[in-house]
Design a binder for these strands. Structure first.
Lengths: 144, 144
DNA sequence: GTTGAAAAAACAGAGGA
DNA sequence: TCCTCTGTTTTTTCAAC
């Protein structure tokens, strides 16, 4: 991982579908050299995946929430979360609650409906997201 | 947005760098037709961006945490968060706390260091992430 | 790491259901 | 409107260095 690798990853952070040829022009290096660096970054596992980022709003999901959950039936609860399309992220956490999940629903009513269904597993505390300040920070933009 | 668009977005969810020609083969449709559908999905804003997903662990960030924060100096606090590379996501929320942030640090000690710096803005409650059950769910996999 | 040629993919226009 | 077909340009791959 040198500065050139960091530059490649920064370009991909802005647009993961950028052609390698365009990247090679921007960093003044031959195209096969960039291809080889990319291959190594993928092989090392530094690059996990290339994802498309969709707009929840445009897909009709107008409510975002984080839900903290306390449960004793962990395996069943995890299965429930995996099978609930509204639950897009799930973390085990320390603290009074042992799970945190990110939820996308059409309305606050559909969020309430999900919470009703989850109540059999334990109890929850809900943080409604009023607005997102940022969520796409480049991991490499670190002042060292 | 029909079933073909959904299929295109599902393929891009798996690999955002998949060539259009490969997608067109998988959905049995001509390459220019897929190109045009992609262009419209981008134009409509359904596709927000194409991102590369990096491994925090491979980049030396071994601690993930969610921090709830209560502050009265919102603009200054947001600026502080934007300028802190460890803070990768920031949301305004309802409830006792008015912010929630996702933090990636090298160690728990560097997390403590960040919390020390943030204390001037208010007070916080920390949820350390013990493990991630999932965080890449396809938004379109909804049983309707 | 570079160059250069062959293969593949993306693009842009014409025309059809 | 949405698609296919086709020719041109661009990108990728792969060889040799």
């Amino acid at each position: 991982m040198d500065q050139i690798d960091a530059k490649i990853l920064s370009l991909l952070h802005e647009n993961a579908r950028m052609p390698i040829s365009e990247m090679s022009r921007m960093i003044a290096m031959s195209q096969p050299a960039v291809t080889e660096r990319l291959r190594k970054l993928e092989e090392q596992g530094i690059i996990n995946a290339y994802r498309v980022q969709l707009s929840p709003q445009k897909l009709g999901m107008h409510t975002t929430a984080f839900v903290m959950f306390k449960t004793n039936s962990c395996p069943d609860f995890i299965t429930f979360c995996e099978e609930s399309p509204e639950i897009v992220e799930l973390y085990r956490t320390s603290g009074e609650y042992n799970f945190l999940m990110k939820v996308l629903t059409e309305t606050t009513a559909s969020l309430a409906n999900l919470l009703d269904k989850s109540n059999v597993f334990g109890f929850s505390s809900v943080l409604i997201v009023l607005s997102t300040a940022f969520e796409d920070k480049n991991l490499l933009k670190r002042d060292k």
